[in-house]
Amino acid sequence: NETITLKMADQFPLTHVASKLGMQTFKKTIEEKSEGRINIRMFPAEQISKAAGLFDAVRNRVVDIAVVGVVYVTDKVPLTSAAELPGLFTDSVKGSAAFDAYIKTELLEREYLSNNVRPLWGFITPPYQLMLRKGDSLGDIKDIDNLKLRTAGATGEMIAKSLGAVPVKVPAADLYLALQRGTVDGAIYNPPSTFAYKIDEVLASVSTNASLGAVAFATLINEDVWQGLPDDVKTQLMTVADELRTSMSSQFQTFNDQSYPKLEKAGVKPFALSGAVLGQFEERLQTVAREWVSQMEARNLPGQDMLDAFKAHLAKQ
């Protein structure tokens, strides 16, 4: 029984919660469970490839496993991005389970095996929130009109637009200064990441109950590498991947919930949107899913069917 070394890459620094709960835990668990037979060599923090290139890195077998942000590869796995649409779920543990099932059944052949990669596990962040650099809440839907919001990714841009805000693309390196100096009025982002980018220092308030899309990550293994593994190793990898997805998503959800008191301590006020505003948000956000479906169908992809399939997975949770 030889040692099997697998190279694994992601975009997160080792200090980032997504790295701690994801790649680092995976490495630790699989090395323990396999009693040293499987060895993971970690390449964190875009060392091997930029975030946008991680899909190609695992497809081209530069590394054996990679944690891929769906937002960067909407060209390669377009239907997968259904999971990032707004308003679909609030509990990310259930969202992650549904996403995991979605990419391993309906999309397995269509978007993954056809690209010579296989999903080990899928994970979705809790829904994104509205973050403001000034003011301690959003009392009225009108207040969001023409607000300049930093968004990441295409879905985020469409979400901001449909809400009546102005989506602004700011590179991560400039985000802090852009918020500090008022280049943007706020951001659509997830609370745990505020600490990673230190923008808790320059924010005034954060919503607690919006559902402004989420970011999905699929951990993929190269299919040739996978086929070359002994059966018991495959079983072990999948078992650990399943456990990891459950533990990662529940811990990330906890971390998300805990970030509100932490943000409050840092002087950022958490606020709940009123039922009326939430309703108006929901109404405006419907255009995003409609637009998504129509763009998919324009490419001869079964957008509506796949969105329904993802929703069915959500309903089962």
Partner: peptide, 18 residues
């Protein structure tokens, strides 16, 4: 300031960029 190097360092190590 502004410095790409310091922002980079802050983001990777989660140190206050400000």
């Amino acid at each position: 300031p502004p410095s790409i190097g310091l922002v980079f360092y802050g983001v990777i190590t989660e140190t206050s960029v400000g």
